[in-house]
Amino acid sequence: MLQTKIANIKLANCIYNASGPACSSLEELQALGQSAAGAILSKSATLAPRAGNPAPRYVDTPWGSINSMGLPNKGHAYYLAAAKELASFQKPYIVSLSGMSLADNLKMIAEMQEEENIAAIELNLSCPNLPGKPQTAYDFEQTEKVLAAVFAQNNKPLGVKLPPYFDLLHFEQMAQILNQFPLSFVSCINSIGNGLVIDWEKEETLIRPKDGFGGLGGDYIKATALANVRQFYLLLRPEISVVAVGGIKSGQDAFEHILCGAKAVQIGTHLMKTGPSCFAQISAELTAIMQAKGYQSIEDFRGKLKTAAPI
């Protein structure tokens, strides 16, 4: 009932993890494999291992989360080697890459090409938590240059993780760029960068890096994520799948994102708060909604959002 397909890759369940929370170590990746998640997505990898930003750098809040992790990860070679360890779960394994330079990304992508147990690559163009490093996908000219270089050497299914956009013209400009390349999918959105959450009793910021500024996730960003999913579904070539990320903690949330056009949904903040059991929970809730509405598959309602009728 929840099956889907991205770039001819079959997922038994359209719900899986977002890159970031609980996907850094082999043990965490194996826990995802043992869960009801339809795929396994790695932490965004850099060329060499990174310790990331100083703690406290992630805090749950009543409306979601704020983080400034700074890409802590074990390095791309670790996630490349993990592919064979995860093959027994018979789920698509997707590696997220977030090099500190274009040269880093090209080197990592080249090394991923020959590993048959890597189903796809998610290229992260949208990390907002690296001091001194702007988000690539807010520079449209640079994004086009990066994708041109990447697809000159890439043969695997590859998608990009995008930051949130807020202006209708920016949706159109980015879609024009993305439509030029043989992308398999776009994941939208990454956290909304440079929010600030304060502990008013202590009179201090919740996190330490960047004087407390960090990426917002969870309920804070659901409406923005829905808008991004909808716009890219409408603007991109139909061959490019949209994967939804942002504020999904229930079957209703997942239903809304699919109604906007998503072919799959990723769970981030809710996974961090509740653990891998969240995939079974959200799957059961989404299945119940679909049964109540008489839908047999997500394709029965995907993208069929209606505009409010006039009063």
Rank of each mutant, 00 (worst) to 15 (best):
Q291D: 05
L2V: 03
D139T: 05
A81Q: 13
K161L: 07
G33R: 10
S277A: 15
H270D: 14
K43S: 12
T307I: 12
A103G: 14
K249R: 15
L259S: 09
G215V: 00
A103M: 10
A284D: 11
E111G: 12
M174E: 01
L123K: 07
E256L: 14
S283F: 04
I94D: 03
F279V: 03
Q281W: 11
L305Y: 11
F185S: 07
E203M: 06
S241A: 08
A45K: 11
I298D: 00
L29T: 10
A225W: 06
F151L: 02
A288I: 04
M112S: 15
A37V: 10
F232E: 03
I240Y: 06
G275K: 05
C14R: 07
G294N: 02
G193Y: 01
Y16H: 15
R237N: 08
G268Y: 15
G268W: 11
C188G: 04
G303A: 05
I121R: 09
N67D: 10
I15W: 11
K202W: 01
Q296S: 13
A37H: 10
I40E: 13
L178I: 01
A175T: 06
E111F: 13
K156M: 04
H170K: 11
S42Y: 13
I40T: 13
H76V: 14
E116I: 14
V265N: 05
S35K: 09
G246H: 05
I177S: 02
F140N: 04
E239M: 08
L29R: 12
K133H: 12
D211V: 00
L26C: 12
K133M: 13
E85T: 14
S68W: 06
G275Q: 03
E204Y: 00
N117P: 04
Y78I: 09
D253C: 08
S19N: 14
A264Q: 12
G215Y: 00
D300C: 07
I192T: 06
L26D: 11
Q34Y: 13
L71N: 09
S277P: 10
E239W: 00
A309F: 13
V197D: 05
S24M: 12
C14N: 09
K107Q: 15
I267F: 08
D139E: 08
L286V: 06
V146E: 00
A309N: 14
Y16I: 09
Y58C: 13
P209E: 05
N73T: 12
Y16F: 14
S241Y: 05
K91E: 00
L196H: 06
E116N: 13
F89K: 05
G215C: 07
V242S: 06
G294F: 01
P163S: 05
S44C: 13
R208A: 03
L235V: 02
I240V: 06
E141D: 11
A45E: 10
